[in-house]
């Protein structure tokens, strides 16, 4: 059975994932829109930066974040100066790391669906008196709905499943940064296989359900294909 501390990690994990997904949508939407529409020379570089977490080992990303956000790092110095202390081993630090880590899973489906929508609906909306912002909310978002759903589900699910970055940046503090993947690792280290089974089973069920929704209900293309 799930112990209270296991439940606590589950709740914390979903809290991190929810907040991170909301932030990714907030940042990722304008970013994806810009990437889908720009002819700027920066496009390739920004695309590469966004996609970096796809190929980088999570520990590498986590290591750099740890250094950057730590007391000697640029971000760390800045947050200290603001009186916020340093971010590693805090809930906030964990969320920021998750956002960076899962961003490609949000930006790329959005970018793909914005590109597919193309120029035509925008022009039609403009000739029908809709300002660019109005057009974005009344035409683009409804047309990109499948993209937004895919982006949210993938972003959320990917954050739930992270391990390496969490361990580097968040550590293993119960109730603050200890998420499910770390808890499973703890159980296995302590040879508590039956507890590990319960949590692992939960994640397996969750991941499978998410993918079923993606491929049957939303009829999304497999991720690997989408990310090309």
């Amino acid at each position: 059975m799930l112990s209270p501390s296991d439940l606590e990690t589950l709740v914390l994990t979903f809290k991190v994932a929810s907040i991170a997904t909301a932030m990714m949508l907030l940042i990722g939407t304008p970013l994806a829109w810009w990437l889908a529409r720009t002819h700027s020379g920066w496009k390739g570089i920004i695309n590469a930066v966004v996609a970096l977490p796809l190929v980088l080992p999570p520990t590498v990303l986590g290591f750099y974040l740890l250094v950057l956000m730590g007391p000697a790092g640029a971000v760390g110095k800045f947050t200290s100066w603001l009186g916020l202390g340093t971010l590693p081993f805090t809930f906030t630090g964990l969320v920021i790391a998750s956002v960076l880590y899962s961003m490609p899973f949000v930006v790329q489906p959005l970018q793909a669906s914005f590109t597919t929508i193309g120029e035509q609906p925008l022009e039609a909306a403009a000739t029908l008196r809709a300002s660019p912002l109005d057009t974005f909310f009344s035409v683009i978002i409804p047309l990109a709905k499948p993209g937004f759903l895919t982006a949210s589900i993938l972003g959320f699910a990917h954050t739930v499943g992270e391990f390496g970055v969490v361990l580097m940046v968040g550590g293993n503090i119960p109730g603050k940064t200890r998420v499910v993947s770390v808890q499973i690792y703890n159980h296995v280290e302590a040879l508590e296989y039956s507890e590990a089974h319960w949590l692992a089973g939960c994640l397996l069920l969750f991941s499978f359900t998410v993918l079923i929704i993606l491929y049957t209900v939303l009829k999304t293309q497999p991720v690997a294909h989408q990310l090309k």
Binding site: P121, A124, L143
Partner: peptide, 14 residues
Amino acid sequence: SLGYVFQEANLFPH
């Protein structure tokens, strides 16, 4: 203040 009819009707599918 114009109306524009495109070559392809370009209606909003949603």
